[in-house]
Amino acid sequence: MIEISNEANLPTQFGKFKIRAFREIKSNQTLEHLVIKTQDLPQNPLVRVHSECLTGDALLSLKCDCGSELHIALQRIQKEQGMVIYLRQEGRGIGLFNKVNAYALQDTGLDTVEANLALGFKDDERDYNVVKFIFDFYKLTHIRLLTNNPSKIKIFETMIKLEREPILTECNQHNAHYLAIKKEKMGHLL
């Protein structure tokens, strides 16, 4: 079941947006996702499906590229018209507690994929079913998907007509290995 909030104004450092929450109620959990969008959506909007990363998005961690991707997406969407679908699926779906445990394993030399596997998870535990609901809610039929993740492209191509647009961030000494693993083990288009 999915509940939908009212729409509200959201002025940000990136510009003025509209915001709406989608409460996804599953048998074992409730997740509250967000859509941050421009006032108007063109026929082929720029869309970023972004999974929550508290450490990158809010704390501006240098260990990943998440916060930078979110900021680039908001800047581009403000300019080109579109939306960010912000999914509450921390740590590729393993949750904040397990993500911190994965970080600790990474501190011992494991990479991001190996750490998730060592904790008993798949390399990516995310579920994108709510995204189809959001596409339908906004009557989207064709998007420009802002991503480097081939798995997202494959999943979303079953939901909507799309063109992929890259989202490239700065590499630093703290995330260079992380980005290399995303490219080598997860096939990201970097």
Rank of each mutant, 00 (worst) to 15 (best):
L162M: 07
L110T: 09
L168T: 14
G120R: 07
A176D: 14
L162Y: 03
I134H: 03
T158K: 15
G109H: 06
Q173K: 14
P166L: 13
V100A: 09
I94M: 07
A115Q: 08
C171A: 12
A118P: 02
E184M: 13
L179Y: 00
L189V: 09
L179A: 04
L105I: 09
N98P: 05
N101A: 14
L117K: 13
E184F: 10
K152L: 10
L96Y: 10
L119N: 02
A102Q: 02
G109K: 07
G93F: 02
E157F: 06
L168Q: 12
H188P: 06
L96G: 10
D136K: 09
K161H: 12
K161A: 12
C171V: 15
L110P: 06
K152P: 07
P166K: 10
K122D: 15
M186P: 06
K185W: 12
E114I: 06
Y128M: 11
Y128C: 02
L119E: 05
N172T: 12
D123K: 08
K185D: 13
F156C: 03
Y103L: 09
I94K: 00
T108G: 02
P150A: 08
H177C: 05
G95P: 06
I155K: 03
A118K: 14
A176M: 13
V113Q: 08
R126D: 11
I160P: 01
V131L: 00
N101C: 11
Y138K: 04
